[in-house]
Write a protein that binds this DNA or RNA. Sequence first.
DNA 1: GGTCCACAGGAAAGATAGGGTC
DNA 2: GACCCTATCTTTCCTGTGGACC
Length: 343
Amino acid sequence: MPLACDVIPMISDARVLQPEFIPNEVIHRNGEIGAISAALRPITRGEQAETTILHGPTGVGKTCLAKYSTQQLREEVLDINTQHVNCWEDHTRFRTLHRILDGISQTTDIHRSSTPKDELLERIRDYDGPQYVVILDEVDQLEDKDLLYDLYRVSNLSLILIANDDEEVFANLDDRVYSRFLSATRIKFDPYSLDELTAILSARVEYGLRDGVIDSEGIRHIAEAARGDARVAIGALRTAARNAQQEGLTTIPMDIIEGAVPEAKSEVKQKTVDKLTADQQVLYEIITEEGEISPSDLYAEYDKRVEQPKTRRMLRNYLSKLEHYKLIVSSGNTRGRTYSTYS
DNA sequence: GGTCCACAGGAAAGATAGGGTC
DNA sequence: GACCCTATCTTTCCTGTGGACC
């Protein structure tokens, strides 16, 4: 086996293997791209775009396509602003508004402690610059859904909303807000088929790895194991390439590919776990260890492990968050309820 | 059928943290 | 440094639901 220092690096462009990479050409989503472009087209005439809702399971390219479409728009329209807001991280009204203002450089004199959130909205309302496209990713995590109504009414501002389940987003909206979004363009994203995922991976291999590093059988194996989730597939490809390179190999053998798939799935899950608070992580840890556990046992075990335990009500909030992000799953009602890990 | 109890989740109030102003 | 204001987090209180038991 050649030493690592003797071999040419197999990764020619690591950016291509990153989950946040937006390719120059998106394949197998022509229908969805067309629908988003049509919704955004009014912007080319200086008008507000139609509100667009992208929904579907994780890893099907919703965020990628939203960003890709706004990039394409930037090439067509000289004067335009865009901003991506992750509502998991910026889930409060203040933070979301702050992030939106950040996209038009209006946050230098805004302070959490002294600027009322009403003033943030006023600033956005007063915005009279070029058309502004805001992508609200994971919009179902937004605490104050009335904000959608407020943003909807801002001229020069167009919304692209991204969620796993569009019904969940609008389930608890009052009629006034709900009616505004009835006419929005809704685009459903289905999981990629095996052939589609294979083609996506092949494109990444072509631009990200040196020739002959991985064969078509290896690519197809990753695509099969990813089960329609491009995020897992690209992660597995990245992991396999990295592991093979660390071993000083010039190609990626099948045993490394097979090991990379569960590792990539674990990495995807770990990224979500890392975003949890310490208390949320303790709950997740207990459920992972126990496999299946009743609420009362879970609360008791949590109390044992934490110095300053939160109230049961707070833990229920945490648990619903864990469930929403498919880290855990609950089954049964009232007394028969249990929590278990998501498989 | 009535009662009890575990549980989920909404609403409102309280506590806390961070930063500005004087 | 004390006070004030604000966003955010947490707790408290409450209601509704559904299974278990008599």
